[in-house]
Design a protein around this nucleic acid. Structure first.
Lengths: 219, 219
DNA sequence: AAATTTCATATTTGATCAAATGTTCCCTTG
DNA sequence: CAAGGGAACATTTGATCAAATATGAAATTT
């Protein structure tokens, strides 16, 4: 009684969590055994994931988890910066009172988790915060692009861990971004968002530089 | 002896050309007959295309070509503007002499086609021009996003046709963009590219406003 | 001894068939 | 006559099997 979306999600999560390293071969029968399904749903799940770029499929040669180079990490952040900057601008123009409320709720959740040192749960709260902004921008296509991008960044960051000191800078950035969106100051929101993501990029790159962990599959 | 990538390409082209309208149901057996293959490759091709967003798959309810709203057209251009602006900036920084040569060759091709009034072939030349810039930027992930975006824009534009007067403005924009990239003026290249895409957006929206063609599937 | 070819094995891809799920139309009932 | 239920049909999904393709190892030849 297993379905394709289930396998897709299980496999996706196994890749993000690091259980399956970048560049690994993905054998259909092996995955079928792992998830307790026949090999048919696995086939289709792999095909679907190849469309998202998380899995690379070569005809007659099977599937692999995408390989990740250091330059690819930079590229990911450049894309994210371009799109989220645009979305912050749009969100400033279109935000409703409801959006502001959601935004402040998301930020409170994030700050509560930092205060209680529940650092593992912070990235998820962060994801919610950015999700509210991107949702408020009202561009579903861009939203799904950012989500895909986020997935890959999460997969990489998961493997290198967070510097806990980072979160205080995040909180300060967020508060300024909220205020810009509140006063519908699109230009300010865009610049602040750009800087916010630029910081994230270098925080991650620094962690990779300090401890590259060559066995992770980052090339 | 047909393969999945072939079916994928055939189906993709049929959607872009307008042979299969937006929102159409895509029945596996029907497509198998259309392309002269068994239904197995079609299944997998649909799954792969669903990953790209061109096809929407609902579990146990089959596949449809994605539906396109007017607001979605605006969203597409916003995304494209955000990414291509970033790529124009990067291309300015990284361009080599070879890139400049390719860029000028692409532009000459485009201008030749406009001059000989071969208007149907102009969009392809235009695609090459932008492709060179995006290639020079050296961000493959962003490149594939732009390509996907371009696919959808092409599908829509194909249905509404081009105003031939448009191309002269395009040529002027392109020449200025080339000069900005040549002198490695990233800020200028970015602004010019942003304006260039903004113009394209309104040229298309105007054509839709003049003749909405309700039977096309745009909602 | 090194290289190339051939053969065996593993794996993906395609075809056929069976089961589950969704849809539609007709019939019954209120 | 309308609304709800049910049966027949269509379509997708899953399973099994066969064929094509790639990979790796062993053996033969130069």
């Amino acid at each position: 009684m297993a379905r394709i979306p289930d396998v897709q999600k299980l496999l996706r999560d196994d890749i993000i969590s690091g259980a399956i390293p970048f560049g690994s071969r993905l054998r259909i029968d092996e995955l079928a055994g792992r998830y307790g399904v026949s090999h048919m749903p696995v086939r289709e799940a792999l095909r679907a994931l190849s469309g998202t770029g998380l899995v690379v499929l070569e005809p007659n040669r099977g599937a692999r988890v995408r390989t990740v180079h250091l330059s690819f990490v930079v590229d990911l952040f450049d894309i994210r910066s371009a799109i989220e900057t645009m979305l912050a601008r749009r969100a400033s123009e279109r935000r409703t009172a409801d959006h502001l409320r959601d935004l402040e709720a998301a930020e409170e959740l994030l700050e509560a988790r930092v205060a209680s040192e529940d650092f593992l749960a912070v990235p998820h709260a962060n994801n919610i915060f950015h999700g509210v902004i991107n949702e408020a921008a009202g561009n579903p296509g861009a939203l799904s692009m950012v989500d895909r991008n986020w997935l890959l960044v999460a997969a990489i960051w998961q493997r290198y861990g967070y510097d806990e000191g980072r979160f205080h800078g995040v909180i300060n950035d967020h508060r300024h971004i909220i205020r810009a969106i509140e006063r519908q100051d699109a230009g300010s929101a865009a610049v602040l968002m750009g800087a916010h993501i630029e910081k994230a990029k270098h925080d991650l790159l620094d962690r990779i530089a300090v401890d590259p962990k060559p066995d992770i599959g980052l090339q």
